[in-house]
Amino acid sequence: MFVRTLALPLLVLAATPALAQEQQTPPPADTGGDFAIVGAGAGILPDYEGSDDYRWSPVPAAIGRVSGFNFQLLGNRLSVDLIPDGGGTGLDFQAGPIGVVNFNRSSIDSIDDPRVKALGELDTSIELGGYVGVGKTGVITSDYDRLSVSLSYRTDVSGVSDAGILTPSVSYMTPLSRKALVTLFASAERAENGQMDTYFGVTPGQSLASGLAAYDPDGGWKSWTLGLGTAISLTGDLTHGLQLVGGATYRKLTGDAADSPIVRDAGDSNQWMGVVGLAFSF
């Protein structure tokens, strides 16, 4: 569940393959050609959504453009932009499919809290949907910074929750030089009733097994997230070669999600996540 958020520092490398250089060297134009960025990192994240125990997890990512179509594999999330991107400045409209593999509470061996373990293991959920968005290059600091907004919806198709999540998000990337950039991002999640019941509800039977109070949440806004990411070139520049990437996010669970005994009594509504890794551009 959290791997997608942790992979966002790798996403900033794909904001534009044409990054600002030192002033004495004109930056290359983004001609809309093919490119790829692959990376992997180590992330620290809660045992489950709402936990106050943390663990390390690998975070893979692959981002690129093929024949004008952008793709992103960010941890447990895959998306493809079906509107061809010709490169350059101006508006970039985006729309396409997304798929998420939700591992939340799918392995009780990775959960430390005995009360949450006693709730039982959930099946891994396959969530499919789509997104729309728009990005603008050349906004505030230079011709190469980028502001993007998007709205996505995905729903479980594997029979785990049979419900969906709506996610609005916004991100801003600015290069500091040809060798470094930073990004800021924010998002929120609105979950349908089945999602809330599955991941934050406690049935009477589970209450007897775990000692947590029985709880029947309603759907609604369940969280908001703020994050910061950075990338620094180690060889060459950010358009090719090896980069060090890192970032951190803060997620706040809200509404019925925050009031769940799984969070209020066994965990924490304040969720911190971090990642550090390497990426290679070519």
Rank of each mutant, 00 (worst) to 15 (best):
R154H: 12
T183F: 06
F185Y: 12
L151P: 11
D112N: 15
Y172H: 02
R105G: 02
G201E: 07
L122A: 11
A191L: 05
D113I: 09
F103L: 13
R115I: 12
Y215H: 12
G96F: 01
A180R: 04
Q206W: 09
A188T: 03
V134R: 05
T198D: 10
Q195S: 14
D197L: 15
G99S: 08
S125Q: 15
P168Y: 00
S187C: 13
E189N: 14
T137Q: 10
V202R: 00
E189I: 08
N104R: 01
D216P: 06
A118W: 06
D112W: 05
P204R: 14
N193K: 14
E192N: 07
S150P: 07
S177I: 10
T198I: 11
S107F: 14
D143K: 14
G129N: 08
D216H: 07
L147Y: 02
V134N: 04
G138F: 08
D218P: 06
V139E: 05
L122G: 10
G211I: 12
S150H: 08
L176R: 07
V149I: 14
T174N: 02
E121H: 15
V139W: 03
N193G: 14
S158V: 04
D197Q: 15
A213E: 13
Y172D: 01
S177G: 12
G120N: 14
A95G: 08
A186L: 06
V116M: 08
G138A: 09
Y131A: 08
A118C: 11
S110Q: 15
A188H: 05
G201R: 04
A214N: 12
Y172M: 05
I108G: 00
V182I: 12
F200H: 06
Y172R: 01
E189A: 13
F185G: 05
M196N: 04
S152M: 10
S171A: 11
A213H: 11
A95W: 06
V160A: 00
S150M: 11
D216E: 13
T174V: 11
G96K: 03
G164E: 00
K222M: 11
G133Q: 02
G133I: 01
A186N: 04
T167G: 01
I165C: 00
I111G: 04
L128E: 08
M196K: 04
W221Q: 09
A118D: 11
V132N: 07
P204T: 15
Y153P: 02
S142L: 10
A163P: 03
L208A: 15
G96E: 00
T155V: 13
S158A: 08
I111S: 02
L184D: 05
I140C: 06
S150F: 06
G130F: 00
E192W: 05
D123L: 15
N104V: 02
S187V: 11
G129A: 12
L208D: 15
V100P: 00
P97D: 08
T167F: 00
P175S: 06
Q206S: 10
G205L: 13
Y199A: 05
L119R: 09
P204Y: 12
G159D: 02
D197H: 14
S223F: 03
S171L: 02
N102E: 09
I108S: 01
G219I: 05
N193E: 14
A213D: 15
T225F: 02
K222R: 13
S152F: 05
